[in-house]
Each structure stands twice: as structure tokens, then as C-alpha cells.
Amino acid sequence: MQTASTVLMVEPIAFGYNSQTAENNYFQVEQKEADIQEKALQEFNNFVEKLRNKGVNVITIKDTLEPHSPDSIFPNNWVSFHEDGRVALYPMFAPNRRVERREDILKTIENNGFNIKEIDDLSSSENGDKFLEGTGSMIFDHDNKIAYGSVSLRLDEGLFRNFCKKFGFAPVVFHSYQNVGNQRLPIYHTNVMMCVAEQFVVICLDCIDDEMEREKVQEVIKSSGKEIIEISENQLQQFAGNMLQVQNDAGTQFLIMSETAYKSLTKEQIEKIESYCEIIYTDLNTIEVNGGGSARCMLAEVFLPKN
């Protein structure tokens, strides 16, 4: 199943700009305002309410003040929950994000009726400075067992290929870039440049600079039977690639994105997406600016079997 009906979200308690992640997340901008946590919490609560109003199951867990991790609002980077009952824990680039891996969160998932059969902890790769940041760095086509990965400091190609072998995905490896000043630098997470839904893929092909890699990615998507909906690099900068398709218990599907992303889309792009599913968008400006992540980053899908 491509779309989950349950998502995990972590409620921020001390959200803010993270200088450790800003080393290679060029979407981050530090705001010097006193009420950033307050604004982020309001954005979070509004987001949760919108999802629940559409019948999407949202498991919310409060962050802790200690140990402090300003990016805990983005749980999809440290954990993924799979339909065979396996849970993967991932190696994280920023040392202050590694404390986000919490056993009590896994217990809460189980207490919500899900069955965890095995925990596959990959985090020891941090000791060798090799990272693979979950569904930030990898985009899964669950139906076709394909995983897309753009190589960066947060996606080590060897770790990615090993993960795919272990979890039964065919890896599609490529490189994507964005303009930072006068430089062309690697995009930190694959999920800011592409989103795989059940019947379509939203992707910024222009940021795959190598022509052969770009053609290969297009070819794999087309052979999987999904329609390509292209976005521009400018739209990517507005988080238009950072989307996620989810569904409610009735099977109704929704494409989730931020208000910033939605406003960047053309009328034609919106109509194309809406021919497949309804769009849910929400204001995440404070979270996007300071955290450098958007709607998709805040959602960890729970595909685990129910007890």
C-alpha cells in the first residue's frame, strides 16, 4: 500500500533554528524572534486538526525539554514503520538530532494497537560518519518496491543500497542540486525535490543536473505506471516537492503540503493533482523558515500491522 492512514507527529516543546543541520540545509534561515516556539506549536496544532478533520489517524507525542533537540518536529528522519512489522532507526547527520530516537515513542505506537515485530537499528553508522536520514533521504514507491535516493551527506550510497537489499527495494541512485549563492550544491534531502503518490510523482527534474541520471529517473517513474507532475527549481525552494499522500480509514486519499508550497503551484499543476486526490494545505511558515523542512518532514507514516 502506497498511502498510510496513520501518521506519527511530534509536538514541539523548544523548536528553533538548528545550527548543526544548517551546515548543509540551505532552506534554513534563523529568525531572531522570541515567540518562535509559540508560533511553531500553533502551526503544528492547526496541521494536526486539519488532518484529523479529514479522518486521518494522527498519533501525537510531545517532545521533551531534555535532551533538547530543536528538530524533533521532523520524526520521519529517524524512524520508519513498515507493513511487515519492522521498524528502522536511522543514522543522523547532526549530533543533536540523534537523541530524537526514543524508545518510549515506539512503545506509544504499540499502545495504539500496532505490532512491532523487529527493530532494525542502523544508527551505529554514525560512528563512521555515514548517514541515511529515513524518508527524508529516501522516497519509497511501496507498490513497486522502488526506493529513490539523491546522494548527499545525509544519504550515503552504500548505506542506501544495503537498506534496499535488506528491505526489498530496488534502489534508484542519483544526484540533485540547488543554487546557493553562485554555487550548485547538493540538495540535503530527496524529499524536498520529489514525492511519490499512488498514481503520480511530483518531481523537480531540473535539479538533476546529470542528463543520464535525469533520464533514468524519468524512465523508472514512467515504467512504474505513474504520471510525472514536474515542478520548477523555484517551486522546489517554496517546498513544493515536500508533499506526502495519505488516506483516511475510508480510503479517501489526500496530498498534504504547506500553504507556501500550494501558493507556488500553477493552476494547471493544482488541477492535475486534484484529478487524483484532494489537496490539504496548512500554514507552516515558522517551521519552514527556521527548520528548513515542511509538511512531509513532519509526518512519519505508520504502515505496521495492527494487533
Rank of each mutant, 00 (worst) to 15 (best):
K166W: 04
L8H: 08
V180Y: 13
L155F: 04
P305D: 04
V196S: 14
E118W: 05
T190H: 14
T266R: 01
D209G: 12
K216M: 15
R98E: 12
N144K: 13
Y17S: 03
V217W: 06
V289Q: 09
I109T: 12
L132M: 12
F303P: 02
H189C: 09
N191D: 15
Y17Q: 02
M1S: 15
I59C: 05
V7F: 02
G292N: 06
G293E: 06
Q183M: 01
V196R: 02
N248H: 14
N77G: 05
D120Q: 09
F47Q: 04
L8A: 11
S275L: 00
N248W: 12
M212I: 12
A40F: 02
P171A: 09
V302K: 00
I109F: 02
S72T: 09
L244Y: 10
D71G: 03
S5W: 08
N24L: 00
I229E: 05
D156S: 09
N248F: 02
A295R: 04
N285I: 14
I279L: 01
N179K: 15
I256R: 08
K145M: 11
T286A: 10
P75N: 05
K32D: 13
Q237F: 07
P91N: 13
L41I: 06
R161S: 09
Y177A: 02
V151W: 00
R214D: 12
K166H: 12
L304H: 05
E227G: 05
E133Y: 07
F114M: 02
Q199P: 08
R97P: 02
D129N: 12
I36P: 07
N24R: 09
T260H: 11
E227A: 14
I228R: 00
F114E: 07
A147K: 03
D71V: 04
R214T: 13
Y281R: 02
F239C: 11
N53F: 03
A240W: 10
N144C: 06
H142S: 03
E157H: 05
N307R: 06
R214S: 14
S69F: 03
K306W: 01
R296Q: 10
A94L: 05
S80G: 06
R102N: 13
A261H: 13
L185A: 13
V196I: 14
T190S: 15
E274V: 10
Q178P: 06
N115A: 08
A34H: 07
S125Y: 12
P186D: 11
N307L: 03
C277V: 10
S232E: 04
K62V: 06
N96W: 07
G181P: 13
Q237D: 14
T260W: 01
M298W: 08
K263G: 09
S232K: 01
A22S: 13
R161Y: 03
S5G: 12
Q237A: 14
K145A: 07
G292S: 07
F163R: 00
H82M: 01
R86E: 09
D121F: 04
I203T: 11
N307V: 05
F131E: 01
E49P: 00
I116C: 00
K306M: 10
Y276H: 14
H68T: 03
F239E: 07
F167A: 08
A34W: 01
E227D: 15
R296V: 06
